[in-house]
Each structure stands twice: as C-alpha cells, then as structure tokens.
C-alpha cells in the first residue's frame, strides 16, 4: 500500500494531478476496499500533499491567498454537502460517478493543450469590454493580483461549490475543476491558478475529512501508509519532472485512465 501510494504520488506529481484520482481506483480495484473507505483514505493523502505544496507556494507568494480563501468558502460549503450525501448514495452510484470523472480526466489530458493562450501575466484588461457594476469592480480588484485582473466571480463561486461537492463525493482534490475554472473562466494566470487551487484543496478536503473521521469512514491502518507513500512519491515526482518525457507518460496515463474507467463502470453495473 505504501508502494502504491508512492506510485500514485509520482505519477500525480509528474502529470499535475493530485493523488486522489489514482489512489481511489488502486484501493478499490487493487486492494478490494469499498469506495467510501478508499475516498476517506484518499482525502487524507490529498490534504497532506496540498499542505506541503501550498506551504511552498505561500512562502514564495505565488498563490493568491485572498482569492483562494474567498473561493474556498464555497468549496468548503460544497464539500459539506458532498460529504453528507456521500453516506446516503449507493456504492454503485459513486462508482459510476467516479468512472465518469476518470473519463473526463482522460479526455482533458488527451486533447491538445491550449491553456498557454490564457497564461498571460497581463490580463488586466477585460476582453469583453463590458463595464462591471461599481461594487463588483471594487471586489474584483481586491481579489486580483499583480499583473492580472480577476473576472467572473459569480462563475467562480458556482464552479468552486461544484468542485467541493465532487471532491467530497469522490475523494479528489478538485484541481482538475478549479485550475481551468480560475485560469480560463476567471482570467487568473495558470501558475497562480495552480498554486491557489493547491492552497484551497486543504480546506475543501478537511471539511469532508472531518465528516468521514466522525462517521468512522477513515481506516487509520490503510490511510496512514497510503498518505506517507503519496507524500514521498509526490516529493520524488517534483524532482523527476525535468528528466521524464511527459508526452509519452501523458498518453500512457490516458490509456490507464480509460481502462480504469471501464473497470470502475463494470463494477458499478455489478
């Protein structure tokens, strides 16, 4: 289980994903844990890697703490809802949802990358040219960072709430939703969006982890070795990133994700 965690951490770190998207299928399909138990284990791994990464990002002032905290209020609310309904949904419904998530991630990884078009550090001009109401302009300016101006706060709030629900239901950090939301939807440069998303993941996952712990949904014997493995793997992955051909790794990963999605779907269908 420690080795599986290391593998998930290395791959997740190299491909810019959290460990959750890999840990949950490994624990359910590989070790026979039920999905809710695997989600509980995954949440702990996700908080640990998020805290380590967010610590570095905050120390270096890359993350936008003001924007992150504003949005994480809504991811936490979403996580509270998701964490509560996770215990009401049938296991095969969660497995079906996870299969859909895996398919979505495989699709986003397989399509041509276009986010560099949005990764400019001079996004301080509203491309739509529409005037914002005076109150909103003030709020948006306060949430903006150096060299960019945040837009579409309403979209950000809705998307963050959705990311919180998905995170709590499926045990993922939700970066796969939050990073494109902030980068493409709100005009935040990719590097800042990644750092801010990492910071937000901690509170999102903590809100649902509290519910899982209190309801006996986290098994400490499986959670701790896995979390340590993911932490060690993520640390190693960040050092290996420049030595690995990420294009080959990405396509290999797409195949693994599709295979896992099919297995998870078959399990959901009984």
């Amino acid at each position: 289980m420690v080795a599986s965690g290391i593998g998930a951490g290395v791959f997740g770190s190299l491909l810019g994903l959290g460990g959750g998207i890999l840990i949950v299928p490994i624990l359910t399909l590989g070790f026979g844990l039920d999905l809710r138990e695997a989600v509980g284990v995954s949440l702990i791994s996700v908080i640990m890697t998020s805290s380590a990464a967010a610590g570095v990002y905050l120390e270096r002032h890359v993350a936008n703490m003001r924007l992150g905290m504003t949005l994480e209020l809504f991811t936490a609310l979403g996580a509270l809802v998701g964490g509560s309904i996770a215990f009401l949904l049938a296991e095969n419904v969660l497995e079906g949802l996870f299969a859909v998530l895996l398919g979505y991630v495989a699709f986003t990884m397989a399509r041509p990358r276009t986010e560099t078009a949005h990764d400019t550090s001079t996004l301080d001009i509203d491309p739509d040219g529409e005037a914002e109401p005076a109150q909103e302009v003030s709020t948006l300016e306060r949430l903006s960072g150096e060299g960019y101006r945040v837009r579409n706060l309403g979209l950000g709030i809705v998307g963050a709430s959705f990311a919180g629900i998905v995170s709590a239901l499926l045990g993922i950090g939700g970066g796969i939703i939050k990073v494109p939301l902030m980068n493409v939807g709100m005009g935040v440069p990719l590097r800042v969006a990644t750092a801010t998303s990492n910071m937000m993941i901690g509170i999102t996952a903590a809100a649902s982890a509290i519910i899982y712990v209190a309801r006996g949904g986290i098994d400490v014997y499986s959670a701790a070795p896995t979390a340590i493995g993911v932490f060690l793997g993520a640390s190693a992955g960040s050092r290996l990133a420049h030595r690995v051909d990420l294009r080959i790794l990405r396509w290999l990963f797409v195949v693994v994700l599709i295979y896992t999605a099919i297995q998870m779907l078959l399990r959901a269908l009984g």
Binding site: M69, E72, L73, A76, L77, A79, L80, G83, S84, F87, I203, A206, A207, S208, I210, I211, V213, A214, R215, G216
Partner: peptide, 18 residues
C-alpha cells in the same frame, strides 16, 4: 470566520448525523 463556521458545521453534522 465563515470558513471556520462551515468547518464547525461539518463537525456538528458529522457528530449528530453519525
């Protein structure tokens, strides 16, 4: 404070709902 309040609600929901 609102974030901390949401976490407090999570604890309350977890304890009472469990």
């Amino acid at each position: 404070i609102a974030i901390l309040a949401v976490l407090a609600v999570a604890v309350a929901v977890a304890v009472t709902g469990g």
